[in-house]
Nucleic acid binder design. Structure first.
Length: 822
RNA sequence: GUCGGAGUGGCGGAAUAGGCAGACGCGCCAGCCUAAGGAGCUGGUGCCCGCAAGGGCGUGGGGGUUCAAGUCCCCCCUCCGACACCA
């Protein structure tokens, strides 16, 4: 069958047409209203997998839909091309990561093309390109200059498997590396950080106005972890309450200063700088042993005691004076207190904190309730509301009142104040890796850290390096790269060999897309203004915290530095997070070896069927099981449309007066138009496909009815259906449109529903008796309650069922429903 | 443990503002067409009783509000996700 539906032939042809006609190329000064749609740029992993297909299909539907609606749509694509897999492959094969990466970019790009997704390829960026690195480094230097980038010695997570430092977020909850699964331990290194904590409050506040999934916003809020309380100092004393000879005091943070009268001991983190000073001679040995153990213990071990009663800790020999009671309480070290949060020391109130309770029980420390629990309370620590007791001048107060009073006291005493703490930490950007963007500074013995001058950027990693599985970055071993001269004093100096976290690259790529040719700045504020914020950002929920938080931080920082427009506070107005693809309940992933290759389907049923299947299977935000993706049904549907549009089904169309059947099918068509628009707006793609199928079924019945179809009506139905389907099934609709009408379907105007055809004149009213449906009556759409009741009561069937019973109540919702209560 | 999200036929799912539960598709069954069908077309398909007309039951479980609950409220169970000693 020469003119049968042949997906391969038409798909290849149209993909070439889209590339050559430039329909989806847009300039910054395009006069149409602007719309920026962006899919998270991928790590170039080789051929596209089903997750990519799903992601880019959603994006492509929006691009084509908005374009047909008359927008200038910016839809760029790029590659997140730095990262560990390429480097690990280099170590394995000895090939340079760039060769490897470039190859995979070509592969991924062509397999993205095969699903029919269209992009503004002129604007493609890759994070490893010299131009992109130049501007990543330039931004780094601006952050350094403004104090938002800094270096400090810090204990970091060290993965022995990957031989590199991991960010906290890359360590799983059980203390293992998210990539290799090895147990992570601690090492001290000089590290570069970005001061994201300066923006903690803004990052929290600005979430409110974003049109993002609520769960993503919640995750970000939790990650920022704002907590409000008080910070204050306590004098270190000996057992008799005499002040420490050096006048030492320690600072603690608490969210419950109102419970201070219940403090029965205090705790410092084992890493606290004052540990040595507060340790008494007779406790020194025990303390040193404890500290050594805690430092060496990986997070796995440290967390393993969670929830148990044997909270590990040791007495320092010193005491601190509770400023509220004037009495001294013992000062402990315990690993449940973290140096990284608050002040690294706490006042312990076992009666109102379960962790303190557990520790107190394990160490035989006293417990004093300061909040009266309800009479039926049978738990341990009580964290609920209640009147204060055992608290002197706080007694009888409620929580809020008491907190305010306690803070007032600390302020009057001059030892403390109200304080807000965030769980969010500064962003550790150093990576001891080769395949990343080099941090553009040199270390000079006399000048210290010196930025590489902007005109010498980019600092590129050398090509002639050996990749050995030593774990050390080849940069350190590369004499030519390592040894340089200080840009400030000219003396011999060493280059920084740390590279940046790849999240740095992805924190500004969406800005570069607006101005990818700029060679004087990463992008101009005008270009950014032309497109940003991104109207629709689409990606996996796995990036809900890190990437999105970092990109938000960069946007704010760059705006404040005058690089981006100052009014640009948020990068992504609307976010959509699509669900994952699973296979038999498991996450589908390369590491699980359960990938279903898109190629198999592209080679048989074709891209349109594959796209439709992904759209149809269920709500886009939900995870789907590949087993449930019904390619066959979608393929069958497309073939039906093909035959219908080519006049291969039903009677020959004729020109004639319109009949009721013609009107009915036109009404169905216009309802479909309205429905598709509504469903597009609410991301209900699965129901859009369902309504296409429903309408096509109806159209089938129309053309196969006894009366021949009316030519004009049939043409309107088919052409409009093709237009509506064009964003989802771009190839087949383009082919059919060209054959029927000539020209490019994707350059046509999006159809609008005729309001007159949306008005219905009769509807089916259900008649309920005691809430059960007993009868259906066709009624005029404008029927009023009285007439509806009248009609219902005259129905023979209703009369029979009522059997003379007294109607106690009539609830009438004309024209849809009437309920008779007897 | 805390915070989110979900639970509807054999399966994926639909029901947008409390008003006809199960749209659409898969699968299955029957029929048509056919030399043949892994094609196409037509019809059926929540469960139970019934030849049928019809009736009863039914959205994880239990309670409640309402003329009316998949939808709202309370309690419980299960699954998924995030965080996980954050003071």
């Amino acid at each position: 069958m020469a003119d049968g539906y042949d997906p391969q032939a038409i798909e290849r042809r149209w993909q070439q047409v889209w590339e050559s006609t430039g329909t989806y190329e847009v300039d910054n000064d395009d006069p149409r209203p602007h719309w920026y749609t962006l899919c998270m740029y991928p790590y170039p992993s080789g051929s596209a997998h089903m997750g990519h297909v799903r992601n880019y299909t959603f994006g492509d539907v929006i691009v084509r839909y908005r374009t047909m609606q008359g927008y200038a749509v910016l839809s760029p694509m790029g590659f997140d091309s730095f990262g560990l897999p390429a480097e690990n492959a280099a170590i394995r094969t000895g090939r340079h990561p760039r060769e490897f990466t470039d190859e995979r970019i070509v592969q991924l790009r062509s397999s993205i093309l095969r699903i029919g997704a269209v992009y503004e390829w002129r604007r493609q960026v890759t994070s490893h390109s010299p131009e992109y690195q130049r501007w990543t480094q330039w931004i780094f230097l601006r952050l350094l200059e403004s104090g938002l980038a800094y270096r400090r010695n810090a204990p970091v997570n060290w993965c022995p498997g990957c031989q590199t430092v991991l960010a906290n977020e890359q360590v799983l909850a059980d203390g293992t590396c998210e990539r290799s699964g090895d147990a992570v331990d601690k090492r001290d290194l000089e590290q570069w950080f970005f001061k994201i904590t300066d923006y903690a409050q803004q990052l929290l506040d600005d979430l409110d106005a974003l049109d993002w999934p609520e769960r993503v916003k919640t995750m970000q809020r939790n990650w920022i972890g704002r907590s409000e309380g008080a910070e204050f100092s306590m004098v270190v004393t000996d057992v008799d309450g005499a002040a420490h000879p050096e006048g030492l005091s320690i600072r603690v943070f608490t969210t419950r200063p109102d419970t201070s009268f219940g403090m029965t001991y205090a705790v410092m983190a084992p890493e606290h700088p004052a540990v040595a000073a507060v340790t008494t001679d007779d406790q020194r040995e025990a303390v040193q042993a404890f500290v050594a153990r805690a430092r060496q213990a990986s997070d796995v071990e440290r967390m393993s005691s969670e929830g148990s009663l044997d909270k590990r800790g040791v007495f320092t020999g010193s005491f601190v004076r509770n400023p509220f009671t004037g009495r001294s309480v013992p000062l402990y070290l315990a690993d449940y207190v973290l140096m990284g949060y608050g002040t690294g020391a706490i006042m312990a109130v076992p009666a109102e904190d379960q962790r303190d309770w557990d520790f107190a029980m394990a160490h035989g420390l006293p417990i004093v309730r300061t909040i009266e629990p309800p009479a039926d309370f049978d738990g341990e620590a009580y964290t609920g509301e209640g009147p204060h007791i055992n608290s002197d001048w706080l007694d009888g107060m409620g929580k809020q009142e008491a907190i305010a009073a306690a803070i007032g006291f600390l302020e009057r005493e001059g030892i403390g104040e109200h304080r807000i703490n965030y769980r969010l930490r500064d962003w550790l950007v150093s990576r001891q890796r080769f395949w990343g963007c080099p941090i553009p500074v040199v270390h000079c013995d006399s000048c210290g850290v010196v930025p590489v001058p902007a005109d010498q950027l980019p600092v590129l990693a050398p090509d002639d390096v050996e990749f050995l599985p030593t774990g050390e970055s080849p940069l350190r071993a590369h004499a030519e790269f390592l040894h340089t001269t200080c840009p400030r004093c000219g003396a011999p100096a060493q280059r920084e060999t740390d590279t940046m976290d790849t999240f740095v690259d992805s924190s500004w790529y969406f800005l570069r897309f607006t101005d990818p040719w700029n060679d004087e700045a990463p992008f101009s504020p005008e270009a950014a203004r032309a497109w940003l914020p991104v109207d629709q950002y689409i990606g996996g929920v796995e990036h809900a915290i890190l990437h999105l938080m970092y990109a938000r931080f960069f946007t704010k920082a760059l705006a404040d530095l005058g690089v981006a427009p100052p009014e640009l506070r948020e990068p992504f107005t609307r976010l959509f997070t699509q669900g994952m693809i699973r296979l038999g309940g498991d996450k589908m992933s390369k590491s699980k070896g359960n990938l279903v290759a898109p190629e198999e389907i592209l080679d048989t049923q074709g891209a349109d069927a594959l796209r439709l299947a992904h759209l149809f299977v269920g709500p886009p935000q939900d995870d789907v099981d590949w087993e449930g993706v019904g390619i066959d049904g979608c393929s069958r549907f497309l073939q039906r449309v093909w035959r219908l549009a080519r006049g291969e089904v039903g009677g020959l169309p004729v020109d004639r007066e319109h009949t009721d059947a013609d009107l009915a099918i036109r009404r169905a068509l216009h309802r479909l138009i309205a429905r598709v628009d509504e469903d597009f707006e609410r991301w209900s793609y699965n129901t859009v496909v369902a309504s296409f199928m429903e309408f096509t079924n109806e159209l089938h019945r129309y053309v196969q009815a006894d009366a021949a179809p009316e030519a004009g009506v049939l043409a309107e139905c088919i052409d409009t259906l093709l237009l509506l389907m064009a964003p989802m099934a771009p190839h087949i609709t383009a082919e059919l449109w060209e054959a029927r009408r000539g020209g490019h379907i994707h350059e046509q105007r999006w159809p609008t529903a005729d309001p007159a055809l949306l008005v219905v004149d009769t509807v089916t009213m259900v008649v309920q008796i005691n809430g059960k449906v007993r009868e259906r009556i066709e009624v005029p759409a404008g029927i009023d309650a009285g007439a509806a009741e009248e009609l219902a009561l005259t129905s023979a069937r209703v009369r029979e069922l009522l059997d003379g019973a007294t109607i106690r109540k009539v609830i009438c919702r004309p024209p849809n429903l009437i309920n008779l209560v007897i």
